[in-house]
């Protein structure tokens, strides 16, 4: 069971790492935290996050949750900014290929576990899937009250007036709620929760989602969860209802509307285009024959 990764240089001390990196006791500890997180939707369960062989802030929480959940039959997908091929997504996928030897995929529909940073896939998730979020700051109240000792008390009392005041101050100042990502939600009518820095565009996907959603914050040592089919409401006001971003144009590659787009700067004369942030969604649509306004140009480029 112990896969040894051993140094080859003559002078190197002998070093061995555990299979799947985390030791069994650590996995048990994380698994117990996950179970309590599921039982108390939106509540941040403290856990003894381990030091991972990747930097804090780069997905150590998500990686630990994924490592605790993964089994030999799982198929793993890892995305960062919606894309499978961003460098950090590649690095994390490679970590699990190496340490857990699980099958990986870029196809949203084929994955049983999806680890993500900053996006929820466009394709509707199913009951057989688990979405694992990487979380930098799990505390939705952190930027209003930096002290853990204080915020814990506010959660215990379900005292969320501060959050509403902050959102309302935005409206007074800017005419809009100025929070565009990591937009706070109320889970199952009790806890206010930070959905991680996903654009608020993705917030509605969390509500009544058939998949289990798990959130891991390694540096801050917190795990939280949204069980399937759970009510998730983005905070708002009657006169300023929650609304998501709309893009004026469809994706330039696949023509999709109602999806989240990345802006790409084409030249220094103001030329820009908008393309799907979810690369799998975009590629699938293109393969199905959906084309955006710049799709032909892309083909011409490939042909050269």
């Amino acid at each position: 069971m112990n896969a040894m990764v051993t140094g080859s240089e003559a002078e190197m001390p002998e070093i061995g790492y555990n299979f799947a990196y985390l030791d069994e006791q650590t996995k048990r500890m994380i698994r117990r935290a996950i179970l309590k997180a599921i039982a108390i939707p939106g509540y941040q369960v403290p856990f003894a996050a381990r030091e991972m062989p990747m930097p804090y802030g780069w997905g150590t929480g998500g990686v630990q949750v994924t490592a605790a959940v993964l089994g030999p039959d799982d198929v793993l997908k890892v995305i960062d900014q919606g894309a499978d091929d961003t460098t950090n997504a590649v690095a994390i996928r490679g970590f699990f290929e190496k340490t857990a030897r699980v099958a990986t995929t870029t196809r949203t529909g084929e994955a049983s576990v999806i680890q993500t940073r900053h996006r929820i896939p466009e394709q509707k998730l199913s009951e057989d899937q688990i979405l694992v979020y990487q979380v930098p700051i799990p505390e939705p109240l952190r930027f209003l009250e930096p002290r853990e000792t204080e915020t814990r008390e506010l959660h215990a009392l379900a005292e969320y007036g501060l959050m509403h005041v902050k959102l309302y101050e935005d409206i007074a100042r800017h005419g809009h709620i100025a929070t565009t990502y990591a937009y706070p939600v109320e889970v199952a009518g009790r806890y206010v929760m930070d959905p991680s820095p996903i654009p608020k565009f993705d917030n509605p996907k969390m509500d009544d989602c058939p998949a289990l959603q798990l959130f891991g914050a390694g540096r801050e040592k917190r795990i939280y969860a949204i069980p399937p089919y759970t009510r998730v409401v983005s905070l708002d006001f009657e006169d300023h209802p929650f609304e998501v971003q709309h893009f004026a144009k469809p994706c330039a590659m696949c023509g999709a509307r109602g999806v989240y787009l990345d802006e790409v700067i084409l030249d220094d004369r103001g030329g820009r285009m908008f393309v799907c942030s979810d690369t799998d969604h975009c590629e699938t649509r293109q393969a199905e024959g959906h084309h955006g306004e710049m799709w032909g140009g892309m083909l011409a480029e490939d042909a050269r």
């Binding site: 069971m1 069994e24 605790a68 969860a225 069980p227 399937p228």
Partner: peptide, 19 residues
């Protein structure tokens, strides 16, 4: 198999509490 046995049972318990 302590590793995969525990993992499979955990997943069953996780699914049970999630649903």
């Amino acid at each position: 198999d302590p590793v995969f046995g525990a993992q499979a049972v955990f997943r069953a318990v996780m699914n049970a509490l999630a649903r």
